[in-house]
């Protein structure tokens, strides 16, 4: 126990400690990025100022940041729920992609709501097998979920170039979903969809559920100490399975929201690795609801600001990759220390 915690048992100082710890990777990333910028003859302060403006400097930019954060809210939350149960699920990417494809396909025929439901179910389908293997036979979930990602990439890639491919479209994509089945825009014309509300509602639900529900309690205990949990009569296998199914459902729903809100179809390059960024979001946010929300907004801000900053500056996108990469490395270091 640290001296700090011992001598200051107050609630606020503990909260402060947590905030400070969470902020450390970001601060170091800014410092490292600053060094790179200086070394390449740029002014770090001016660039960071530009980034802040492009991320939050107006309704349109905030909309862009939240829009970029939306898929990460889903994938971060999906990852956090599995992590909380002690399941290292790295298959959220697969659930997101498969959910997106199925949602885009179903919505073509049956509309928005059916698309969302189908997307969530598709995500469940992706996570069910690794969940079962882990719960029943204790098969290492890192291996199985990673493999499922590859399978999903293969299957979606094949489907979108065969059965599901739109006629007369020049690239690998499903047909455009009719506008009636799109998720509504919140702030037209800024392209922020109601998907962000779905995501935030889930985050709030998660915060309450994990803390105050019976199942949430069992999930937390299973993650902290599975042996203890089993001895107290918690059915660890079932909890693991449930956590994986919920994780998959959220991942799939995320894909559905992305398909129905933003891309309006499934297309090559549908996810530039949202599922993997979601792992960093969950690690950075320590699997807490608030942490996931902040982490998603942080990475969303870097993505949106990093892109449009190029309109005003000659600094290449790579520097933004350095920033988010550094933050991710620290998140992974934390994971390594935990395991």
């Amino acid at each position: 126990m640290s001296v700090f915690q011992g001598s200051n048992p107050g609630k606020y100082s503990r909260a402060l400690t947590r905030v400070v710890r969470a902020a450390v990777p970001f601060v170091i990333a800014l410092g490292l990025g600053g060094i790179v910028l200086l070394a390449t003859g740029h002014n770090p302060l001016a660039f960071y100022q530009l980034l802040v403006r492009e991320a939050f400097g107006g309704v349109d930019r905030i909309a862009a940041t939240l829009s970029a954060a939306t898929p990460l809210l889903f994938t971060g939350l999906a990852t956090a729920i599995a992590f909380r149960a002690g399941v290292f699920n790295v298959g959220v990417e697969g659930g997101f992609v498969f959910g997106g494809l199925i949602a885009a396909t179903v919505a073509l025929q049956a509309g928005l709501l059916a698309g969302m439901v189908a997307g969530a179910l598709a995500g469940v389908l992706v996570s069910a097998l690794p969940g079962w293997l882990k719960a029943r036979w204790n098969v290492d979930e890192v291996v199985t979920t990673l493999m499922v990602n590859f399978v999903v990439a293969g299957v979606t890639g094949w489907l979108v170039t065969t059965f599901l491919q739109a006629k007369g479209v020049a690239n690998s994509a499903t047909a455009l979903i009719p506008q009636g089945s799109w998720l509504p825009d919140l702030l037209p014309p800024y392209g922020l969809t109601a998907g962000v509300l779905v995501a935030l509602a889930l985050v709030v639900l998660y915060a309450v559920w994990i803390k105050h529900s019976v199942l949430g309690y069992e999930l937390r205990q299973t993650g902290l100490n599975p042996r203890f949990s089993a001895a107290q009569g918690i059915r660890v296998g079932r909890v693991i399975m449930v956590s994986m199914l919920i994780s998959g459902a959220i991942a799939g729903l995320g894909g559905a929201v992305h398909a129905l809100g933003v891309v309006h179809r499934f297309v090559d390059g549908f996810s530039p690795g949202y599922g993997f960024t979601g792992i960093a979001v969950a690690l950075l946010g320590r699997n807490s609801a608030v942490g996931v929300a902040l982490g998603a907004v942080l990475f969303g801000a870097l993505a949106s600001a990093g892109t449009t900053a190029q309109l005003f500056s000659d600094i290449p996108l790579d520097i933004v990759d350095v920033l988010s990469g550094t933050v991710m490395i620290f998140a992974v270091v934390r994971l390594w220390r935990q395991r």
Partner: peptide, 13 residues
């Protein structure tokens, strides 16, 4: 320490 208690969980839990 391994089974009787969950050392990192709260006393209430």
């Amino acid at each position: 320490r391994a089974e009787g208690l969950s050392m990192d969980a709260s006393l209430a839990d």
